[in-house]
Design a protein around this nucleic acid. Structure first.
Lengths: 338, 338
DNA sequence: CTGAAAGCGCTTACAG
DNA sequence: CTGAAAGCGCTTACAG
């Protein structure tokens, strides 16, 4: 059905190994025969069978993108990560295979079902939540992988993450500079590493400015249902007997919910209470008032993680295997302007 | 390095074909030997090499998901489509390979570089914009594929799409029922099929109610920068010498922008002007006023398209190969409540 | 029911 | 520089 080396060889009147050499640009061949064979191959619409090739080369030229649940790839953040990944993978001739641990029976050996089946040469892992012991076990099999957007303490584990500690700190510092001393926070679920890290940044900022941490000013929300959760948690903070004068929401969606609660109370932003978000989603610029927030760099996260993985696959040990991508403060009106 | 049939055969003291049969649950084998072999395979952590298997079976058990540019998978709509795809593919033991036409040299034979390389058994194609002649050419090679979210006239081409004509009609009818006769529209780019289809629904609704179509009430916006585009286009509509009393925005983001413009003008929604959106994104329920909109069903679109493709791969000719997934009107406050 | 052999489409030492 | 051969890890007719 589809064209093979054998057929080209027959027409070119050479051995299939010669055809193979021509196609692979081997030095062991005259320009003349190479040109002849290439012309025929082109003519016949030849494409190498990647399965056969992979079987002998022990390479699939495919990268696995591992997601905890497909659900988590929601939103513009992830799609930018993916765009970064794709850019690098295309440049280097790799395909991307999506997989996720469904918890079903056939995945009970996840992720080894993928690695041992030789489907993929390396893994990019997005996993912000679950236990990762099974993934770290890949290390023992010397299977190349990189964690995306999760900072792993173990220096031997490749990872590229947004600098959440820095982000938490910058956001808090901005509020402190605006004169706030009682800063409420609405976190995401503490099952998410991002929550812990941003919280750490918050505490660092407080400590540096010698402000005390008041646990009653902290509410645990959820990233997934940001708006609802933001409203609920902000409500609780506002009913505090000594309410905060500013709220640091761990996502823009949570901030949107919090703004709603503040408005419902008849309070004004930023005069009565300041609000800062996290993520810089498109809508945040169009809220009333426009939301001051922290902007991450998901494209770079995707780009660098894929580059790191490919470097490892090519035995170019990357200089840094523990990358933290910086974030930026985006000042708008919800904490007062400059 | 990794375990092969040969090694299992040696330990079990049988031929590799017997091992293969045991692993593939062949009837040509005693329960006893099968059990013995399976135990050994398990013990040795055996996984079949999918490349080798694919080489002989002529199947990769992988589905290609083709995107025009990775960029387009933004937002919750696509991620729900993907969730639907993934659910079906996992149930049926297929992997998903992402690919997009980058326009680069190595892709100049796209999508045939994928099909002829035997990397994938079938294709799910998301392509709302570009010319598709090269993709339709797959038909000649009898390569199985399904178009996602694009309705193709040719009845021989598999497709699963959101019913945009219905959506455009329902939205317009709602406005007409509320007493509006001059209904402005802000479309997406007319390079997108969705724009044409929703527009067709709009015109159908007008015609049924015997309202004339006034071209000066139509503005072409863009889906990608919905908010900005919505503001700009709404501005123009509001400056019309006989402005519309209602605006049908072809996306919620465009509607958000339009609401902004209306507020800037000092007008009230829905009293001075009604606005209806499209997509039912999460934020739309939290706008002031909450946005009336059309809700699509992206999970079902993904689910059905993947099911259709797998049916074709298994030679179960699907009963319907031209699916239109219904949409729903979600009434909130931006066009007046019930 | 089991084994020996051929073959899937390629690459790569080994001769010449 | 070119060819003949072996082998990558599997499946599947073909014998027995």
């Amino acid at each position: 059905m589809s064209v093979t080396l054998k057929e080209i060889a027959k027409i070119a009147n050479v051995n299939i190994s010669t055809v193979s050499r021509a196609l692979n640009d081997s030095p062991l061949i005259t320009q003349e025969t190479k040109d002849k064979i290439l012309a025929i191959a082109q003519e016949m619409n030849y494409f190498p069978n990647s399965l056969a090739r992979g079987l002998v080369s022990h390479k699939s030229e495919t990268l696995g993108l591992i997601l905890p649940k497909i659900f988590f790839l929601q939103g513009p953040f992830f799609s930018e990560v993916l765009r970064g990944i794709e850019q690098v993978s295309v440049e280097n001739g790799y395909n991307i295979l999506i997989a996720s641990d469904t918890g079903k029976d056939r995945d009970k050996n996840f992720p080894f079902n993928l690695t041992r089946a030789k489907r993929i040469d390396g893994m990019l892992i997005i996993n912000e939540q679950q236990r990762i012991s099974n993934l770290i076990a890949l290390k023992k099999e010397r299977f190349p992988f990189v964690f995306i957007n999760r900072y792993i303490k173990d220096q031997d584990i490749n990872c590229v993450a947004s600098n959440n500690v820095q982000g938490g700190k910058i956001a808090t510092e901005h509020l402190i500079e605006k004169g706030h001393k009682r800063i409420g926070i609405i976190t995401g679920s503490f099952e998410m590493a991002a929550s812990h890290e941003r919280f750490e940044g918050y505490r660092n900022a407080l400590k540096e400015k010698e402000l005390v941490f008041d646990k009653s000013l902290m509410q645990e929300g959820m990233f997934e249902q940001g708006i609802e959760t933001g409203t609920d948690c902000a409500m609780k903070l506002l009913e505090h007997e000594e309410p905060p004068t500013a709220i640091f929401a761990f996502s823009d969606e949570i901030a949107i919910g919090a703004m709603q609660a503040v408005k419902n109370k008849g309070l004004k932003i930023p005069d009565d209470i300041a609000i800062i978000g996290y993520d810089n989603i498109e809508y945040s610029a169009h809220l009333t008032p426009p939301l001051t927030t922290i902007s991450q760099d998901p494209f770079t996260i995707g780009y660098e993680s894929c580059q790191m993985l490919i470097d490892e696959l090519c035995d170019r040990k990357p200089a840094k295997n523990h990358l933290q991508i910086p974030v930026k403060l985006v000042v708008r009106d919800s904490c007062g302007t400059e």
